[in-house]
Design a binder for these strands. Structure first.
Length: 218
DNA sequence: AACGGTTGCAACCGCAGGTAT
DNA sequence: TATACCTGCGGTTGCAACCGT
């Protein structure tokens, strides 16, 4: 049988020191990523492999884009969250240089609050009863659009049904270099959506062709 | 200046699916 | 085939910095 990934009695926890960071960077620079279980020992770190992986992926990786989120990144997170739910890794995969942890934190600390303030339930992206209609990810927003929204930003979906299980949604965004190719699996086989007056099976019935046009030009 | 509440972010925890033994 | 480990993911926590009183 295999050995445990790390000796839990001799591992450090909590914040990483600069020396630890440097050791991890130096090691990965020479040997590359992977084999996280053996990295701590090989790199001379008293850390769990899991901790090393997390530190590298979320903080030390050279291609990480740090700093505030751009408006189009924020808009895209909202749209993808509406489609995918709390699939942070998938969402982060559409945002070059952003990590799932970063996206998740940003959602919980900024976007979630913002949507609630606008009267939108962040869990299902639907408008709460009694609120004026806001500029909404899936709505043709009208009256109470958030002033911080980028008014020139416009996205649209093309929906292609490949088989009963999977749907490819291509998000077209002419103003951004973000990687927006997206494939998602639909959870329920019994859902229906109306597109251009045609009924399509296996889709969320609450969304229509109009819904698929993401238009923030409000 | 001191204090308590809030916010933002890094890191940990536990679980699930895949893989090696 | 069963078991243990590895990896990745999402939820949660801990803590420092910030803010208002």
């Amino acid at each position: 049988m295999r050995k445990p990934c790390c000796d839990k009695e001799n591992i450090n926890k909590g914040s990483w020191s600069k020396q630890e960071d440097q050791k991890l960077i130096d090691y990965i620079r020479v040997h590359g990523e992977g084999c996280w279980g053996s990295i701590p020992k090989a790199a001379g770190l008293q850390r769990c492999g899991k901790s090393c992986r997390l530190r590298w992926l979320n903080y030390l990786r050279p291609d990480i884009k740090r700093g505030i989120f751009a408006q189009d990144e924020e808009d895209l997170i909202i749209k993808l969250h509406a489609l995918l739910g709390n699939r942070w890794a998938l969402i982060a995969g559409r945002l070059p240089g952003r990590t799932d942890n970063e996206v998740k934190n940003y959602w919980n600390s900024h976007i979630r609050r913002k949507l609630i303030k606008m009267g939108i339930d962040p869990n299902n992206h639907k408008l709460h009863q009694g609120f004026p209609r806001p500029c909404h990810v899936f709505g043709a927003g009208t009256s109470s659009c958030d002033e911080s929204m980028n008014k020139d930003h416009k996205l649209s979906f093309t929906k292609e049904f490949e088989d009963d299980q999977e749907t490819t949604i291509i998000i077209n965004n002419s103003s951004s270099s973000l990687n927006l190719d997206l494939t998602i699996a639909l959870p329920s086989p019994n859902r229906v959506v109306v597109v251009d007056d045609k009924t399509i099976p296996n889709c969320d019935e609450s969304r229509t062709t109009r819904d698929m046009d993401i238009d923030l030009n409000c």
